[in-house]
Amino acid sequence: MKIAFYGSSLLSAYWNGAATYYRGMLCELARRGYDVTFYEPDAFDRQQHRDIDPPDWAKVVVYPATEAGLRAVMACAPDADVVVKASGVGVFDDELIEGVMARARPDAVRIFWDVDAPATLAGLRDDPRQPLGRVLPHLDMVLTYGGGPPVVSAYESLGARVCRPIYNALDPSTHHPVATDLRFAGDLNFLANRLPDREERVERFFLQPAARSPQRRFLIGGSGWDDKPMPDNVRRVGHVGTGDHNAFNCSGLAVLNVARDSMADVGFSPATRVFEAAGAGACLITDAWEGIELFLNPGEEVLVARDGRDVAEHLETLSPERARAIGEAARQRILTEHTYARRAAEADTLIREQVAAKRERSVA
């Protein structure tokens, strides 16, 4: 089956946290026999910050972020058996969701794949007349990379025929243990771009513990932090490409995960960083959110913090030996239960069910 996937970027993780999710999912779907074409706009300097070359398992079409470029890629939708519009493309999102779904063949499976469901749902509740709200009841399926039962219930109440979470996961070929790297040496390493709906939580879970522990070394990676006031024991390293993620995760005593506000409120939304850090065998400290135990066992495979004080206390009591034990336990759990191969099998089953259902309806 041919998939036309309209997303932010497959080639660049620059201001694009969904990149590794797209890569892991679509690579595994390609291994299951899908013919994948990924359409991404030339926007936000992402093409100047590519992390990978076009892979052999997908055709990548980079189009100008113009109305002419938009029309050209929307015209390709009728060629596909499965048409996917992801959330957060960043340019022409409204035009894309209406345009590609209107152009899809009647027998094609039409999917909205939401990589930030809590934020999308908040926008739909504020304005149900927006293009996604109008298109939603006519789609075959909504897939999300997190959110669990609350997100499923919310989408189905807004008219989605089917909503299923396909959670973030690990690609063991790209995220795995490596040797430590002095560039990323620290007691607590944190990697995330600066976003308004996460900044206050970063202050509580990262900067406040740093201020409480001046003898500890804190490292922050990601874009946008250059002008943020920080304690003297915090070192900024800027954008960290995916090729350096393993070294970043393996070179600190522990790695911190901080959810965005909406994802923390809804729960059941582990970020890609959770699986990438665990896959590298890092000792992960995460802010508390509902559903963590579905992915990692608190106290044994992950350390959970309710606030910055908990983060500081975890660091004070964490020996290198215990950190390694927690990281290895997390790695084994993720390898067993949470790989993209398993997630792609779930998505494949859902897609083929929709294909069969559409065929039955056309015969009837």
Rank of each mutant, 00 (worst) to 15 (best):
M1H: 11
I3D: 02
G7C: 15
L10E: 01
L11D: 01
Y14I: 09
A18V: 12
A18E: 03
Y21D: 13
L26Q: 07
Y34G: 03
V36R: 04
V36Q: 05
F38N: 02
Y39C: 05
D42S: 10
D42W: 02
R46Q: 14
Q48W: 00
L70S: 10
A75E: 14
V82N: 04
V83W: 07
S87Q: 07
V91C: 10
R105P: 04
I111P: 00
T120R: 10
R125G: 08
R125E: 13
Q130S: 11
L132A: 10
P137V: 12
Y145A: 11
G146R: 02
V151S: 12
V152F: 03
V152I: 15
S153E: 15
L158W: 03
R161W: 01
R164S: 09
L170C: 03
V178Y: 01
A179F: 02
A179C: 06
R183V: 08
A185S: 14
G186R: 01
D187F: 07
F190K: 07
R201T: 07
E203N: 13
F205W: 10
A210V: 08
A211N: 06
A211I: 04
S213G: 00
Q215K: 12
F218K: 02
S223H: 05
D232P: 04
V234R: 02
R235K: 14
V240C: 11
G241T: 14
H245Y: 15
A254P: 04
N257L: 09
D265H: 10
G267F: 06
F268S: 04
S269Q: 06
T272W: 00
R273W: 06
W289I: 01
E290L: 06
N297S: 10
E300S: 15
E301M: 05
V302S: 01
V302Y: 01
V304K: 03
A312D: 12
H314M: 04
T317F: 00
R324P: 00
G327R: 02
G327M: 04
Q332D: 11
I334C: 06
A341F: 01
A341D: 13
R343N: 05
R343Y: 06
A345D: 10
E346F: 00
T349D: 09
K358N: 04
E360F: 05
